[in-house]
């Protein structure tokens, strides 16, 4: 069976299990909502201020909310020792990792897409003016976030204080992704399209995604099998 079909089987399995319980996705969205509300106390939510910091605000919300989903990713395999059976199956660690990453990616994108209108309503921001370019940033930024997060989720699955370790490992590594996404989102929220001055950020996001997709696919087999 092809590599991508194996990954797809894993993705479908993770999504199905998650949609049955909705544990991670509910927690993640509720958390996003809480942070969005809390931010309104941190500064005066006027139109101008909000627009200026919209990028940072949104991506911090996404990064926090994402951690809840990513924490569950490999932890889901723990209770019945399912990871053993997956490793024993004739499927490569890379396919397993890719499948899990894609599942997390779709879940996180869903949380983000629901959070965006809520953000728009709370802070009176017209976020749809550059809708498709915003989607492009979301797609690229979230993949970077998910990739690093899923890899670190595999690294931390067996250790105590897993929930604390994951953000400690991922956020510093994610600085380029978050910064790029924040910059681009800020411009787009202000209603401006991505101009030539912003293209380097897009390249940075794409480059980060590419480099770390390759690196994690190579390294994950070692992480899973030792």
């Amino acid at each position: 069976m092809g590599f991508f079909r194996q990954a797809l089987v894993i993705t479908v399995k993770d999504l199905r299990a998650e949609i049955r319980t909705k544990e991670a996705i509910n927690a993640s969205f509720a958390f996003a909502l809480v942070i969005l509300v809390l931010f309104s106390f941190a500064f005066d939510p006027l139109e101008d201020t909000t627009r200026d910091i919209s990028g940072g605000l949104l991506w911090i919300v996404f990064a926090f909310a994402g951690t809840l989903i990513l924490n569950r990713s490999f932890a889901r395999e723990l209770p019945n020792d399912c990871l053993d059976a997956l490793i024993a199956a004739p499927i490569s660690g890379a396919a397993l990792f890719l499948g899990k990453s894609v599942a997390n990616y779709l879940l996180l994108l869903a949380v983000e897409l629901v959070s965006l209108p809520v953000f728009g309503i709370f802070y009176n921001v017209r976020w749809t003016t550059q809708f498709w370019q915003l989607m492009l940033v979301l797609v690229l930024g979230t993949w970077g976030l998910t990739l690093i997060g899923t890899f670190c989720s595999a690294l931390t699955v067996n250790i105590r204080l897993r929930e604390v370790m994951l953000p400690m490992l991922t956020y510093p590594a994610l600085v380029p992704v978050l910064m790029g996404s924040m910059q681009l989102t800020m411009t787009l929220m202000a209603g401006k399209p991505i101009g030539p001055d912003m293209v380097p950020w897009l390249k940075l996001l794409a480059g980060f995604d590419l480099v770390f997709t390759a690196a994690s696919l190579v390294l994950v087999e070692i992480v899973l099998v030792g």
Binding site: K13, R16, A17, E18, P79, N80, C82, A85, A88, P90
Partner: peptide, 19 residues
Amino acid sequence: ETRRQMGFIGHGISVYDEL
């Protein structure tokens, strides 16, 4: 090829509660 021939039962049941 080896993994295809191998069956493993460990301490856990290795099936998913949600499925």
